Computed example of a mutant assay.
Amino acid sequence: MNARRRSLPARHAVRAMQFGIVGILVAGVLARNVSVAVNGLFAFAVTFLPSVLSRDWGIRLSPGLTLWITLAVFLHAVGMLGLYDGVWWYDHVTHTLSATIVAGVGYATARAVDRYTDTVHLPRRFMFVFIVTFTLAFGVFWEVLEFFARLSADAVGAEAVLVQYGLDDTIVDLLFDSVGAVLVGLFGTNTLATAVDSVHKRIEEARAG
């Protein structure tokens, strides 16, 4: 009961941000702004990811992690309203937050596999390098995706859903992706213990089945 009560503020905050994202989505539709509407829809869908993982896969995330994921996509959706263009540091914040989520996914999966089999041993120093490398690899993939999304939009004369501002912007984005990965490597691994346990349990159940 006490744990449930402690989680209530996080749940209320998640619900409030979900309503905020819906408002952004509606604003994008009414303004016929494709990028705002699509990113709002994407952000809203991501907020239900922890529930889907828990219900369908038995992977439980702590209320704090659920709040962190929701905050990242909420800030991204808000940024599409003009903050990305009008506030120079806003993109750095959202990239760092998003990178912590990617790093967390990489760490939780790798650590669960490490616990699953004795043939795989991942020392702490290697895990730190893995977290940074995994996050940067995803960051590069995302930048390439933004680049081709912009080319495709220009080719058909449509508004780009994902925006890529050039090589300098890409380098800076990857720099802040690294910051997010380093933060998880240094301070976030204990926070992810519940997620690691859930993933490990899911692997064991799959093996037994």
Rank of each mutant, 00 (worst) to 15 (best):
T70L: 00
L41Q: 09
R111V: 05
V29Q: 01
L61T: 04
S54Y: 11
T96A: 10
V163K: 13
L61C: 04
Y165H: 13
I24F: 01
I171Q: 10
G23E: 06
I21D: 03
V52N: 08
V196G: 06
G104A: 07
L61Y: 02
R115P: 00
A195L: 12
L71G: 08
L75M: 14
V22W: 05
F147S: 05
P123K: 03
M80S: 11
R15F: 14
Y116F: 15
D91H: 04
A31H: 13
V26S: 04
S35P: 08
V93Y: 08
F148A: 08
V156Y: 13
R207V: 15
R125K: 13
A13E: 07
R60L: 13
L25I: 02
A31S: 14
A181M: 08
P123S: 07
G157Y: 09
I59R: 05
A37C: 07
Y84L: 01
A208G: 09
Q164R: 13
T170G: 04
T170L: 04
F187T: 15
F74N: 02
V105P: 05
E204R: 11
V29E: 07
N190K: 15
R32V: 12
K201D: 14
T100P: 05
L162S: 04
A112Q: 00
W88F: 12
W142V: 08
S35V: 09
A181D: 03
G58S: 05
M17D: 06
L30C: 07
A137H: 11
Y165V: 10
V46P: 04
T133P: 10
V29M: 09
G28M: 08
F147M: 06
G58V: 06
W142T: 04
V78R: 00
N39M: 11
D114M: 07
W57K: 11
A195I: 08
R4F: 04
V78N: 01
G104T: 01
H95A: 01
L122N: 03
W88T: 11
V36L: 10
L122E: 00
A37I: 06
G40M: 01
V156Q: 10
F176K: 07
V120H: 08
L167D: 13
G86V: 10
V36G: 00
N190Y: 13
G104F: 08
A108E: 02
G20T: 10
S178D: 12
A13V: 12
F42A: 09
V140L: 14
V184N: 00
A193Q: 13
A206Q: 13
V29H: 00
